Amino acid sequence: MLETTHHWLPIIITFYVPLSFFITYSIAVENKHVEPGFPYISYTGTTPPESCVFGQLLNIGAVLAGVIIYTRYRQSRFHFEKNQNNENCQNGQNSQNGQNCQNGQNGQNSQNCQNSQNGQNCQNSQNGQNGQNSQNCQNGRNCQNGQNGQNCQNDQNCQNGQNGQNGENGQNRARKCLLHLNTAAFITGSLTIFGVSLAGNFQATNVWEVHLVGAFLAFGVGFVYMILQTIISCMSVSLNIRGNSLCIRVLRIVLCVADFVLFIILGIAARLSISKGPGPGISRLHWSSDEPGYAEHLVATISQWLVAFITLIYFATFYEEFKHFQMTAPQVTPRTPGNSVVPG
Rank of each mutant, 00 (worst) to 15 (best):
N112A: 12
N115K: 13
W287C: 01
C137T: 15
V237K: 02
G195Q: 00
G119S: 15
H211Y: 07
Q144T: 13
A308V: 05
N103F: 02
T188D: 04
E209N: 14
Q114E: 10
K176C: 03
R249Y: 02
D290T: 13
P330Q: 01
N148P: 07
H7N: 08
V299M: 13
L191C: 04
V257S: 14
Q135A: 09
Q111N: 15
C52L: 07
Q159N: 15
Y16F: 09
S303Q: 09
S273W: 05
I60M: 06
G55K: 06
R77F: 06
H6R: 09
I12K: 06
L312M: 11
H286R: 08
S42C: 06
L9M: 11
N157E: 12
H6N: 06
N139E: 07
L255P: 00
S95V: 11
Q105H: 12
P48S: 02
L306T: 04
C122G: 11
Q123S: 10
N109E: 13
F186N: 10
K323C: 02
S238N: 08
F54M: 03
I12T: 13
F15C: 09
Q144K: 13
F263N: 11
N91M: 04
N133C: 11
G214E: 04
L19V: 07
G267S: 13
C143E: 11
N169R: 10
F216V: 05
I68P: 00
I13T: 03
S20T: 09
I274Q: 08
Q75W: 04
S275M: 09
T317S: 04
S26K: 07
L312Q: 10
H6L: 05
L9R: 06
F194L: 08
L181N: 05
G55W: 00
